[in-house]
Design a binder for these strands. Structure first.
Length: 643
RNA sequence: GCUCGCGUAGCUCAGUCGGUAGAGCGCAUCCUUGGUAAGGAUGAGGUCACCGGUUCGAUCCCGGUCGCGAGCUCCA
């Protein structure tokens, strides 16, 4: 039997040999590091016999796929411990996930933090017992017998096709229905931690029973585990809900309602600067600005087709205004597109008028489920930087290109975010013929190709009314957020009977493109708070300079300086409270003000300032006011990312 | 929306096995006029989320409501 290794070399081994034997033959170091094997592209257990000629790669603790194997095995060890401590616990699924694993259990009461400690300790014992993970192929009858007491597993077995091999894995006292593969022995699991428990519906279906899910993480090296836990800690410290309060950016009041944001002056400044940035870019890019009402007759959403489909997400209807018929109902708008469509429709359009690009930073309200609300990231009152382009099929590519340009400027360049593109294609149920979809999908891809952008394809992930481009971005600590979307729409033009007159003097239907760059100002601001950990770049900082006189004697000079800086368009405060210098410096640092200009006797006399740069510690620079203005002015103009 | 947990001063949190509460920060006043991350003193501030029940008595026990958190689900 011939085994081909990744370097192209071929080894002759006896049929029924294992990947472990091959690794052993190559070297003791590789054997020690070996976790699993890749056999003809599929991940296998190290000890699974190989019966035919294959290509084989040994997966070591440096391979991402090996880490998945470890985590999946950690889930089994977790289940092993739970089964011992909570006999009779039903077992659901226990997959590896990004950064860890979970396992769902059917138990009479939820797990408490004390339970997790106990379970984690027991997991350690299971790991140290160094049980082998034993793979067995069983037939359906045997599987059903073995899991007779586990209805959740029986359900899964019932779904397996007749052509599928059913395997079970046993580690010590615990046997689980599982496709595998696993680490060879539980002793390989050394660095892990249980993180938290929460309810989770069986198969994610809220109509089905709720299981208790335990989340954990596992790594090959202690440093990796520590780094991950540190990353969690770091993320906690960057939480925009905490920073939002500390920096006095926004609040959400019970009295106003959940998911409805009160923007305080400092947060409002950030929001205003962001919306100005996108509006400036819109105008420069050839969009027209429009404004539309916050409430409309419900009829509008009947025409658009959002009722009844979307009604659950809308605030309930209110009755008509004074003097109108009782049965006229109004709704707060959850989106702008129908109104923009009506602006399009307000006059006859010629193909010569297209594309027509309408943009609006607008408040819309969506009655999101209470459980989904989360600080600024998930709200009910949304400020969308919305735009709708009406164009011909032939113009789509250029219009998409324009959107991608905006994304590039406003998101990638301005904030240094790495972007990740995904094209979602036609779903099963859709509007419009294949010919239109072929063209539309190809056009999206052409625009991306033309811009030299790499992208993934989410096959069948598009909306019923058109394909789209989803753009995700990665923040300073590696977290991925949903960013801009560019969505084609064949439906709304249909429903509103939008037309333009073509060169053939006949009516044609335009295509609509929905697009948001920031998405919503709430979410994007929340992302930025976490990305910058509250330390906004100078152009975006609500307070750019804090002027601090050392003693009362310099208060006048400090106010003069502040006046000069404000005249140059800067956002400046003077902190001349009767607190010590140390105290005021500390407060300025904690408020993350990018620059503090300290004015003592020497500076007051020489017309200079002692500049303290945020985060730079004791280092200070004495400079003239002119030099400072030049420096900060350049940073604001260029939207510099530091300090 | 569902499951579980939580809700004490503006903030962060102690505490009360049922007898109406405490710290630090912040705030106010006074002293200190300070050269780069907390100078000192005094003081004000709480129907212990809200409604109902049990009890001689509830912030504490029970039920409900609202809000928050972790998830599930969904999405910008």
């Amino acid at each position: 039997m011939r085994v081909t290794l990744p370097d192209g070399s071929v080894r002759e081994v006896a049929a029924g040999s294992t990947a472990r034997a091959v690794a052993e033959g190559i070297g003791a170091g590789l054997l020690r590091a070996a976790v699993a094997a890749k056999v003809d592209g599929a991940v296998w257990d190290l000890d699974r016999p190989i019966e035919r000629d294959v290509s084989l790669a040994i997966l070591t603790d440096r391979d991402a796929e090996a880490l998945e194997v470890l985590r999946h095995s950690a889930a089994h060890v977790l289940a092993t411990a739970v089964r011992e401590l909570f006999p009779g616990a039903g077992i659901g699924f226990g997959p590896p996930i990004e950064d860890g694993f979970y396992y769902d259990f059917d138990v009479p009461r939820p797990f408490l933090p004390e339970d997790l400690e106990q379970i984690e300790a027991r997991m350690g014992e299971v790991a140290r017992a160094d049980y082998p993970f034993v793979r067995e192929v069983v037939d359906r009858a045997a599987a059903n017998r073995r899991f007779a007491d586990d209805p959740l597993k029986l359900e899964r077995i019932g779904e397996l096709g007749d052509d599928e091999t059913i395997t079970v894995y046993t580690d010590g006292p615990f046997t689980d229905l599982c496709r595998g593969p696993h680490i060879p022995r539980t002793g390989r699991l050394k660095h892990f931690k249980l993180l938290h428990a929460a309810g989770a519906y069986w198969r994610g279906d809220e109509k089905r029973q709720m299981l208790q899910r335990i989340y954990g993480t596992a790594w090959f090296r202690k440093e990796d585990l520590d780094a991950y836990l540190h990353r969690l800690e770091e993320a906690r410290k960057r939480d925009h809900r905490i920073l939002g309060r500390q920096l006095d950016l926004y609040s959400i009041s019970d009295v106003v309602g959940p998911g409805l944001v009160l923007w305080h002056p400092r947060g409002a400044m950030i929001r205003w600067l962001l919306s100005r940035a996108v509006e400036d870019d819109n105008v420069a890019s050839g969009y027209d600005l429009v404004y539309t009402p916050n409430v409309t007759k419900e009829e509008l959403f009947r025409i658009s087709g959002h009722l009844p489909l979307y009604a659950a997400n809308q605030y309930p209807a209110m009755s008509a205004g004074a003097g109108e018929a009782e049965d006229v109902r109004y709704r707060v708008k959850p989106m702008n597109c129908p109104m923009h469509a009506l602006i399009y429709k307000s006059q006859q359009r010629s193909y010569r008028d297209l594309p027509i690009r309408l943009s609006e930073v607008a408040n819309v309200y969506r009655n999101e489920k209470s459980g989904t609300l989360h600080g600024l990231l998930r709200v009910r009152g949304l400020s969308m930087d919305d735009a709708h382009t009406f164009c011909t099929m032939d113009q789509i590519e250029d219009e998409i290109f324009l959107c991608l340009d905006q994304v590039d400027r406003l998101v990638r360049t301005t904030f240094g975010f790495e972007l990740d593109f995904e094209v979602s294609t036609r779903p099963e149920e859709r509007l419009g013929g294949d010919e239109i979809w072929d063209r539309a999908e190809a056009t999206l891809e052409q625009a991306l190709d033309r811009k030299g952008i790499e992208y993934r394809i989410d096959e069948g992930g598009g909306a019923f009314y058109g394909p789209k481009i989803d753009i995700k971005f990665r923040d300073a600590i590696g977290r991925v957020w949903q960013g801009p979307t560019i969505q084609l729409d064949f439906n709304l033009p249909e429903r509103f009977e939008l037309e333009f007159t073509g060169p053939d003097n006949r009516p044609h239907r335009p295509v609509m493109i929905h697009r948001a760059i920031y998405g919503t100002l709430e979410r994007f601001t929340g992302n930025l708070i976490e990305h910058f950990a509250g330390a906004f770049p100078v152009w975006l900082a609500p307070e750019q300079v804090r002027v601090i006189p050392i003693s009362d004697a310099q208060a006048g000079a400090a106010r003069d300086l502040a006046r000069r800086l404000k005249a140059a368009g800067l956002r400046v405060h003077v902190d001349d409270r009767t607190e010590t210098l140390n105290y005021r410096i500390r407060e300025g640092e904690m408020q993350k003000v990018p620059y503090m200009a300290v004015i003592g006797q020497r500076e007051a006399e020489s017309g200079c300032l002692a500049l303290r740069v945020r985060g730079a510690g004791k280092k200070q620079e004495i400079m003239s006011v002119e030099a400072f203005l030049e420096r900060i002015g350049a940073e604001v103009r260029s939207k510099a990312l530091s300090p």
